[in-house]
């Protein structure tokens, strides 16, 4: 398994993260036929440099849009403003979707983008297994 995304969409995601500083930024990815087809820039309802959360209303609207378009939820992304692109214990504890979690690290330039699957027996478990998924940037 890998996460395939065009250069344009990957740049869009990174730009949203850069614009969100000093707070973490977050968003959703829609995929179709195995590739990311759209980046949804979301509000970080936590408004924090060390936490993020989607606004449930915004999330609902985007899920609806994804469903109505015949796409799939392709991933969840967020930034780490000063740490590496690797899931933090909070990321693991809060992981709630069975999709790639994409982390954009702004700790260095250029930003690094990595994706992970966070596998938990029960979604409410605080611990889980982290598996990296290769990110393929097209173009």
């Amino acid at each position: 398994m890998e996460l395939t995304i065009s250069r344009l969409l990957a740049n869009d995601m990174v730009e949203h993260c850069l614009q969100g500083r000093p707070h973490e930024a977050c968003g959703l990815l829609a995929s179709h036929e195995g590739a990311v087809i759209q980046v949804f820039r979301m509000t970080n309802a936590s408004g924090s440099p060390v936490r993020y959360s989607l606004d449930p209303k915004e999330q609902f609207a985007v899920y609806k849009r994804i469903e109505d378009s015949g796409w799939e939820l392709g991933g969840v992304f967020h930034s780490h403003t000063h740490t590496e692109a690797y899931p933090s214990p909070t990321d693991v504890r809060m992981a709630s979707e069975d999709v790639p979690y994409v982390i954009v690290s702004l700790a260095q330039e250029p930003a690094s983008v990595r994706a992970f699957r966070i596998i938990k027996e029960n979604w409410a478990d605080s611990e889980g297994q982290i598996e990296e998924i290769p990110v393929v940037i097209d173009g």
């Binding site: 973490e24 977050c26 060390v50 449930p56 999330q59 899920y63 709630s96 979707e97």
Partner: peptide, 10 residues
């Protein structure tokens, strides 16, 4: 009826 898990992290 849509079920949505909260999406959050740090």
């Amino acid at each position: 009826v849509s079920l949505l898990p909260s999406v959050a992290g740090g």
